[in-house]
């Protein structure tokens, strides 16, 4: 017990401030109205779905929970079921074998069904592209709100993208980039 307490005290609090949302990653007009955004606040629940990644993106999604990024401290947590989730965080090109599972997870998610595509593969299909075995980017299978490029995106980029999904719309309300150039 005492060595554990000593180690906790020795470590102290290492959490760093969260970054701001990055509106450039938003693909579609903000679908949350003001009332819903206020109700949600930052109490966002995420269901992660790996639709065929190389597992590189998963390493960085795991890192979001480490004491430095401490995602839960800003009210965002991961749920075990899509039925408890506000947002799907989808990695990978969508493997053909995962297409049905991803669609089912999407169907099981209650409105507003926010979807964030993660990584170069989630945004464009990446090095795997489209083939008999790969459906390519996530948007080919389910509607996507925010796309975070990177191979893999860093934890900070992930946070910027996730926060952008629930941020108030930019002044013009339009998306800053098209899916094609993310």
């Amino acid at each position: 017990m005492f060595p554990i307490l000593r180690q906790i005290l020795r470590t102290g609090i290492v959490s760093e401030p969260a970054p701001d949302a990055d509106p450039a990653l938003v693909l579609v007009k903000q679908r949350l109205d003001t009332a819903m955004r206020e109700k949600l606040g930052r109490a966002l629940v995420i269901r992660h779905v790996d639709a065929g990644s190389c597992n590189g993106c998963e390493l960085e999604i795991h890192a979001l929970g480490n004491p430095y990024y401490n995602l839960e401290a800003i009210g965002i947590k991961f749920a075990a079921s899509p039925r408890h989730a506000d947002l799907l965080l989808v990695t990978g090109p969508v493997a053909k074998n995962m297409e049905v599972a991803l669609k089912r997870a999407y169907d099981a998610t209650p409105a507003p069904k926010l979807v964030v595509a993660v990584g170069d593969c989630g945004c464009t299909g990446g090095v795997f592209g489209e083939s008999y075995a790969s459906c390519g980017r996530v948007a080919n299978v389910i509607p996507v709100d925010v796309a975070i490029p990177g191979c893999p995106p860093t934890p900070l980029q992930l946070m910027q993208g996730i926060l952008a999904a629930i941020a108030p719309p930019a002044d013009d309300g339009a998306c800053a980039s098209s899916p094609a150039d993310c």
Binding site: G52, G92, F128, S131, Y132, A133, S134
Partner: peptide, 11 residues
């Protein structure tokens, strides 16, 4: 298993 098969060998 095999859910993540994305056709690497053909690629």
């Amino acid at each position: 298993l095999g859910w993540k098969h994305k056709g690497v060998d053909r690629r």
